[in-house]
Structures are given as structure tokens and as C-alpha cells.
Amino acid sequence: MALPTYATPLERLWRATYLVICSLIFLFLIAPILVIIPLSFNAEPYFTFTDRMLALDPEGYSLRWYDSLLTFGMNAPDAPRDSSWWSDVWHNTTWVRVAKNSIIIGFFATLLATVLGTLAALGLSRPEMPYRRVIMGVLISPMIVPLIITATGLFFFYSNPCGLFGMIGLPSDCGKLAGTYLGVILAHATLGIPFVIITVTATLVGFDQSLTRAAAALGANPRTTFFKVVMPLIMPGVISGALFAFVTSFDEVVVVLFVADHTQQTIPRQMWNGIREQISPQILAVATILVIISVALLTTVELLRRRSERLRGVTPR
């Protein structure tokens, strides 16, 4: 909204002030994320710009914190860097181990959340769905209920998940879910489900039901209709829902703190340790890598959103 030519000087002044204020707010949003990137290349163990960094002296910058990510926790960090060194990194380095955990847990949680969530969103988008509002309310609630409450509940539940069976006379001991991968995966899937439902139902809004009827009239059975007509149309929503679910799991730490043991430590869990115990610029190196991952994810989601709008014939906002 550019100012019209007849704007008074006062209006021009106000407009300029307004733009400055907006820029400052944008700076507030983005600066904290950008500032850690140069700091992660700090040659000194400080969290601020050293004089040498400000002078753009190459001596002031180093990759030592990235290097320490690789060597932290391994058996023989000083050994020559041959294939056995890399194998040591792969098996023993703390950050590699937690990254593997994050990816395994995130992958399976996303898979569960996406499959179940997409099916449910298809059902919820049908006008004849009974008790739609209540069910939707329950399914979205994991996103609203504070994580600490969910984690507390899961802590009790996971200590004896079959305890309730005891009430109806079934065997009430089937081991624990606390301290298992399955436990963390189930919890993270639950937390990701609301995102899948929201994104997939959003793609289904304005979904032209006559397309499925047309497919049926042309002789397609329900399965063919689903895979050839419905799926391609809702795919962008499904993928961005899956990405949301993955990020939720990838970033989640409260549930991990409460129900996981040391074998299921994830990246955020390790960062939590690092920040609380011996915060070092190593954390900033991890943070920088995570920022790069979020940029990639954001780009993907944006591209998907545009594709979805194009497919549905909605003019972009």
C-alpha cells in the first residue's frame, strides 16, 4: 500500500516511522536466529563476537566446534582419520548417536501420524460424519494441552500400560513402555497428529466431490478413485502435514525427558543437557545445522502450499 500522491507531510512521516517500526520487529524475529550462525565459527570458547571476528580476521574464525561435534564422545578422537576413525564416529560420537535416534523416532512417528491422520481427515471432511466437532476437538487436543501435562500422563501410563486390563480381569503386566523406542514413537505420533489433520482437512476444504463421482461414473472402483483422483489432489497437504509432524517430533524434548531413558536420547534432549550443564559453542554449531534444516523444510512447505493452491484452482493469497 504505497501512499497516494496527495499524502500530507505528516502522513509521509508517519508512514516512514511505521516502516521503521516494522523493520525493527522483523529484526527482532530474525536476528536471534541469524546471530548464532557466525558465532558458531568462533575460534574462542565465547558466545560473543571477539575483536578478531569483528575485524574479519580469518584467525578469529574456525571450524573447531563443528569438528568437536564429530569427536565428542568417541573412543579415539586423536587417531588418524581413516576409515576406522569414521567408523568410531558413526558408532560412538554422541551427536551422531542422538541424530540417529531423532531420525528413527521422527520417521516412525511421522509415518504413524500421517497414515492415521490422513484417513481420519478424509472421514472428518465428509459432511455426514457424526459427532464431528467433538471428535475433532479430541484429535486436535494434543496440540493444545501443555506438553508437561501430556508428559506427566504418559509417565504414569508408560510405567504399566496394561494396568487397566487388570480391572477387567485380563493379565495386567505386559512390561513397560517407559524407556523404549516404541513409547517415544507413540507419544510423538500423537503430538504430530493434529498437524496432519489440520493440513489435510485444509486441502480438502473446497474439494470438489463431483470429481470422485465422475471417476465412479467412468467406472473406477473406490480404490482406483482414491489413488488416482483423491490422493494426487490432497498430496501437498499430506506431505506438509508429514513435515509438520516430523518437525514436531524432531524438536520435542519434554516427553523425551519424562519417558525416555539414555538409549533414546534425541538431538533436542542432548541440547537440553548441553545448555544446562556445560554450554559451549558446540551447541551453536548444532543450532546452525538445525537452522539450515529448518530453512530446507520451510522452503519445501512453501512450494507445496503453492502447488496445492494451483491444483485446487485457488488464487494464491
Binding site: L29, I30, P32, I33, V35, I36, L39, F47, T48, V247, F250, D251, V253, P268, M271, W272, I275, I279, I283, L284, A287, L290, V291, S294, V295, L297, L298, V301
Partner: peptide, 16 residues
């Protein structure tokens, strides 16, 4: 971008 950035990353930034 902040919306997609890890909560712990943003908290770390503010500590820094």
C-alpha cells in the same frame, strides 16, 4: 523461519 526453527535453537540464541 522462526516458526520452523527448533525451540531449543531459539532459546539458545536468546541465552547467547
Amino acid at each position: 523461519l522462526p516458526f520452523w526453527t527448533s525451540l531449543l535453537v531459539r532459546t539458545t540464541s536468546w541465552i547467547v
